[in-house]
Amino acid sequence: MAAPRLIMKLRVAALRPTGGETLVVEFQHPRKPQLPAFTPGAHVDLHLPDGKVRQYSLCGDPADRSRYVIAIKREAQGAVSGWLHDHLREGMILPVSAPRNHFPMQPTEGPVTLVAAGIGITPVLSMARALGAEGRPFALHYVAPSRASAPLLDDLEALCPEGSLHLHLREETGARPDLEALLATPAKGAQLYHCGPAGFMAAVEAATRHWPEGSVHSEAFQPPDLGPPQPFTLRLKDGRELPVAANETALQVLRAAGVPLMASCENGLCGSCECGWSAGMPLHRDRVLSPEARSRRFIPCVSRAEGVIALDL
């Protein structure tokens, strides 16, 4: 589960159609001139009236904090995208979360290759904007069936410096691009960022398997599928093993065993009961620890484990 983010009621300030049955939506805050900052690759959550939540990458300029720009493709089976296309109007208020970035650019100096297909262009567009603003060279490969089906193509052509945008349109080439050939030779220190449909991303992964470790990055919006709670076991520093039944929390078991631990919200939010773990396979279900902290910290009021987990208690 992701950590909480502020939800703001933002106003739809502008709407415009772009290629590929996609709607570009610009949000502004009704009262504040500045929105929370974002970095290239970040996304926001849109909260819909029926309670559904959808994530959309920000494709605007990270230096412009007066607005958030997203692009919504009308998906054939997508009830949400269809509803948004049919119902969004300028002036409407919609709850939008503060941005979060699961697809950040690495702080490197080397050359950057951006690869996107279809609506996967959205996070890549904000990356291209940031690189352009810094005057850093980059190559952007954009794959789409045709000009008409390529979202945000006008924006790309306006912002990409001469020679940096490489269009791969099937209507012109008659074939899918040869990614293996295109990405055959990584330049020294190069970083690659890619986003698009699952099949496309798998093809990019296959074509870059020989790139140095840590040089290929992609966007993955895949919330873990949390099944029903399973029993597991806590091992304490004194060697005691405490079984946690499916209907119990680790915190309850620790309390019953007399282990002193602060607790407040017991919802995985406040971090009061945080402790360390040293061995095992934790199933983190809190909304407070950072991904980095999860490698050694544990929130026993909500998090569980597979098998035995050793805690620093």
Partner: peptide, 17 residues
Amino acid sequence: NFPCKYIEELLQMPGLY
């Protein structure tokens, strides 16, 4: 009232707790 890490996260203000 007892402060919470939740608000620190929400406001992106480390140390606020």
